[in-house]
């Protein structure tokens, strides 16, 4: 794996988070949430620092990071797009919606656009089955999405309302 060198500052951030949780191994998941929130993702190098700070093995950290779907080892786009593939959404056509997103952005699931503006992911039920099919962009939820709506959703984020959408 091509290593990345963490800056002193980044290491400092991670150390601070760990000490906020009293450097306890049982707080690993909270630490990972916080760290990903600050850094955006959890590459192996970050996991090594966390393991050292919490005094647990890197294998354990890696095991937890790869177990939970919320943790990612690759950076996400500025606007992560998630398409719900829960059953209610699925039968109401989320596959076509996903296909349209792939087509519009020319990326596959798990990838980001070259400008790093969008990334595409699938979710397992966001708990909004009454609105199926559901798409999330960042924290914002779109209900009853049809393939025809995809273009408009994407353009919302292309045209500088990014900051507004983020706070929603």
């Amino acid at each position: 794996m091509p290593g990345i060198k963490l800056s002193e500052k980044t290491i400092g951030i991670i150390q601070q988070i760990c000490s906020d949780f009293r450097n306890e191994g049982s707080e690993l998941i909270n630490v990972l949430h916080q760290t990903q929130g600050k850094l955006g993702y959890l590459p192996a190098e970050v996991q090594e620092v966390i393991a050292k700070e919490l005094n647990i093995s890197v294998a354990k950290v890696y095991g937890v990071v790869t177990f939970y779907s919320f943790f990612t080892m690759i950076p996400m786009g500025e606007h992560p797009i998630s398409i719900c593939m829960g059953t209610a959404c699925y039968v109401r056509g989320s596959e076509q919606v996903l296909a349209e997103f792939k087509r519009q952005l020319s990326i596959e699931v798990g990838q980001s656009t070259p400008d790093n503006k969008f990334s595409l992911n699938c979710l397992r039920c966001v708990g909004a089955c009454g609105l199926a099919p559901v798409v999330m962009v960042g924290d914002k939820v779109y209900g009853r999405v049809s393939p025809q709506m995809v273009k408009n959703i994407i353009s919302e984020y292309k045209e500088g309302c990014a900051s507004e959408a983020k706070s929603a």
Partner: peptide, 19 residues
Amino acid sequence: SGAYICGEETALFESMEGK
């Protein structure tokens, strides 16, 4: 953190314990 299995009570405990 996004794992269906954690709804199972003992898996939930494990998860709360950082595993």
